[in-house]
C-alpha cells in the first residue's frame, strides 16, 4: 500500500538501465550468471508476495519452481521443436493447478503448521521426481532443444543465443515486477496486506480471507513455475535438486536479506546472495562462515533488509534536506 518514493524508483530504473547495457560491455561468464540470477529473482519476487505481503511463510516454494521446470522437460524432452507459447501455457496451467491443490490444503493452517505442510509437500514432490524412473530419477532430464519463440513463423528471439536469452529474461523479470505491483495496488492487494497485518480483523470486516490467501498462493506458485520454466529452457536440464528444501530455504534468505514486502528487495537480495556465493569462495575455503556472518549482521542491523536500508537512507536524506531548507530561511 505504501508508494515507492521517487528517488528509490529512480535508483531502480538506473539498475534496470545498467542491466540492459551489461551484455554489451560485460563478459559472457557474467552475462550468463546474471541471466541465472534474474531467473532466480522472478522466483524470489513470487515468494515475497507470500512472505512479505500475505504473511504466508512457505518453506516449500521451490516445489513450484521445480514443477515448472519439469513440465517443460517431461513434455518436450525429445521434441525437435518446442513451441514456446504452447509450452509456456502448459507449464503455467500445470503449476497453477499444482499450487491450487497444495494451497487449498495448506491454507487451512497457519504459523508453524503452514511452514511444515508446505515443506512436507515440497519433499513429496522432490522424492516423486527423485525416485521415478520415467522422469529421469536423480539424474534429471536433458531437453534437446530450446523453445522457439515465433509469431506467425517469424522468430522474434533466438533463445539459443545467450544475449537474446538475457534480454528475454530481463523482460520477464520487469514484467513480473510490474504485474505484481499492479496486483498489490488493486483492491485485492489491499486485502492481502491487511491479512498479513491482522487476519482476524479482516475476517470480522467481512472477507473470506482463506480465498484471498489461496489466490495469492496460486499467483506466487504460478510465477515460481514460470521461473522454473525459464531455468529449464536456459540450462536445457532439470534435476530434482530444483525442488529441494535447500532451494526453498535460500529463497527465503534472499527475500529476508533483500527486504520483505517491497518486491524489488527480493531482486536485490537474490543478486547479493548469488554474488557473495560467487565471490567469497575466491577469498577463502571457509567462505560459508563469512556468508553466515553477513546474514546475521544484516538481520541484526538491517531488520528490514537492504531495501529497508534504502528507505531509511531516503528518509534520512529527506530530513537533512528539510533541515537545510529551514536553516536557509
Amino acid at each position: 500500500m505504501k508508494k515507492t518514493p521517487g528517488p528509490i524508483m529512480l535508483f531502480l530504473l538506473l539498475c534496470i538501465g545498467l542491466l540492459a547495457i551489461f551484455p554489451l560491455v560485460g563478459d559472457d561468464f557474467y552475462t550468463e550468471l546474471i541471466t541465472k540470477i534474474m531467473i532466480l529473482s522472478i522466483f524470489t519476487i513470487s515468494l515475497d508476495l507470500l512472505i512479505g505481503f500475505t504473511g504466508l511463510i512457505s518453506f516449500g516454494h521451490a516445489a513450484f519452481f521445480g514443477i515448472g521446470a519439469y513440465f517443460l522437460a517431461i513434455f518436450f524432452q525429445d521434441a525437435e521443436q518446442i513451441n514456446y507459447w504452447w509450452a509456456l501455457t502448459l507449464t503455467l496451467s500445470g503449476t497453477a493447478l499444482a499450487s491450487l491443490i497444495v494451497g487449498w490444503i495448506c491454507i487451512r493452517t497457519s504459523g508453524i503448521y503452514f511452514i511444515m505442510l508446505t515443506l512436507a509437500f515440497a519433499q513429496m514432490f522432490f522424492y516423486f521426481f527423485f525416485e521415478s524412473p520415467h522422469f529421469g530419477g536423480d539424474d534429471g532430464i536433458f531437453i534437446s532443444s530450446k523453445p522457439d519463440l515465433s509469431i506467425a513463423a517469424e522468430e522474434l528471439v533466438d533463445l539459443g543465443n545467450e544475449h537474446h536469452f538475457y534480454y528475454f529474461v530481463l523482460t520477464w523479470m520487469v514484467a513480473v515486477y510490474l504485474f505484481l505491483s499492479m496486483v498489490l495496488r488493486a483492491p485485492f492487494g489491499y486485502i492481502l496486506v491487511a491479512i498479513k497485518a491482522n487476519e482476524q480483523r479482516v475476517r470480522a470486516l467481512g472477507y473470506s480471507t482463506q480465498y484471498y490467501k489461496l489466490v495469492s498462493f496460486v499467483i506466487a506458485g504460478t510465477i515460481a513455475g514460470l521461473a522454473g520454466f525459464l531455468e529449464a529452457a536456459h540450462t536445457s536440464f532439470v534435476t530434482p535438486a530444483y525442488l529441494s528444501w535447500h532451494e526453498s530455504g535460500i529463497a527465503i534468505m534472499m527475500v529476508v536479506l533483500g527486504g520483505m514486502g517491497t518486491l524489488f528487495g527480493a531482486v536485490i537480495g537474490t543478486f547479493a546472495v548469488v554474488f557473495l556465493q560467487d565471490l567469497l569462495p575466491a577469498i577463502t575455503d571457509h567462505w560459508q562462515i563469512i556468508m553466515g556472518g553477513i546474514v546475521i549482521a544484516i538481520v541484526l542491523f538491517l531488520p528490514n533488509g537492504i531495501a529497508g536500508a534504502l528507505y531509511s537512507l531516503h528518509a534520512l536524506l529527506n530530513k537533512k534536506g528539510l533541515a537545510k531548507a529551514d536553516a536557509d530561511d
Partner: peptide, 15 residues
C-alpha cells in the same frame, strides 16, 4: 472496500 461485491480485483488501482 466491502461495498464491492468482491475485492478479487487485480487490475485497476484501488485508490
Amino acid at each position: 472496500q466491502t461495498m464491492l461485491r468482491t475485492s478479487m480485483r487485480f487490475f485497476l488501482p484501488a485508490s
